[in-house]
Design a protein around this nucleic acid. Structure first.
Ligand SMILES: [Mn+2]
Ligand SMILES: [Mn+2]
Ligand SMILES: [Zn+2]
Ligand SMILES: [Zn+2]
Lengths: 147, 147
DNA sequence: CGACCATTGAAAACGATTTTCATTTTCAAT
DNA sequence: ATTGAAAATGAAAATCGTTTTCAATGGTCG
């Protein structure tokens, strides 16, 4: 890691080391706030802006990407070998990943059709996860015990 | 329109009339700022919050949806018969729509696989449109006239 | 060891969105 | 037409996640 960053002209610092570790070990889909809290447990002197800047750095060197689910906070998603889509529960904010190989095939064709040079594909399904869906069902149809 | 809103318990006002008209006649994919500017040309006394609230209202009654392209501003997209995806040029911000029938088919299956109750599917391709793509090409490979 | 420049932390700035509040307007019932 | 309750408006302020500023610190390399 240190070497990887050095080749890109960045320096390694204790704070950076800690933030990178925290992100890659426990941090997928974290917001700045969430990672800040995690990192603070290990070193309560680290500043918020340092966490923010290092998350941006992780993106700049291509190890993560910002994800915007439309709820006002930016999350940071590790870049993986295979691209994936997100099932986002608007109730409990759970995020489930799924394979998008087939979808990407279709979207690549769409891009070609429009002479569009794609950088990235974003595929999201918003709705209710199994658990929240079950709960809502209950609320709408309270157990009709009476005949 | 007046009747449609009345049945939902909302009142009609001159401001609302103007804002709705502006949105449905010239406003697809507008931000609040953009629609505010448009509406201001017709009535320079309308307040920003009134435009904001009425865009929210248009969404609430199901005639539009918020779109978040990750550039920090919320846009408002008319709800159409057939769902569509967006090709978003990160350079010139152009937005091109495309058919997602096939994609939605795949995503519906993904939802079923996860017992997920989908509300909406979001399909975006970020990159460079044909024009911007051509320009960038030029910059990277300036006409190599010399041998 | 310096010199140089990236990095840090605290605080302030930013900017889009949302809320507040006093006032005005709509609209259904008199 | 008059009235009253509820909804809507406009200006201003509040909110809140993000981003910048700036002085101080610290890493890298000769
Ligand atoms: Mn992910
Ligand atoms: Mn659209
Ligand atoms: Zn859920
Ligand atoms: Zn473009």
């Amino acid at each position: 890691m240190r070497e990887f960053l050095k080749t890109k002209g960045f320096k390694m610092t204790p704070q950076r080391e800690l933030i990178f570790r925290a992100f890659f070990e426990h941090g997928d889909h974290v917001s700045v706030d969430e990672l800040y809290d995690k990192v603070r447990e290990l070193d309560h002197t680290i500043g918020y802006s340092t966490v923010w800047r290092n998350l941006k750095l992780i993106c700049k060197v291509g190890l993560a990407e910002e994800v915007n689910l439309g709820d006002g906070v930016t999350r940071y998603d590790r870049v993986t070998q295979v691209p994936h889509g997100h099932l986002f529960c608007t109730n409990c904010k759970k995020l489930i990943e799924f394979n998008v190989d087939q979808v990407v095939g279709l979207l690549a064709q769409v891009s070609r059709d429009h002479a569009f040079a794609p950088d990235s594909f974003k595929v999201e399904i918003h709705g209710l996860c199994a658990e929240c869906s079950a709960k809502t069902e209950q609320i709408k149809n309270p157990e009709q015990v009476k005949s």
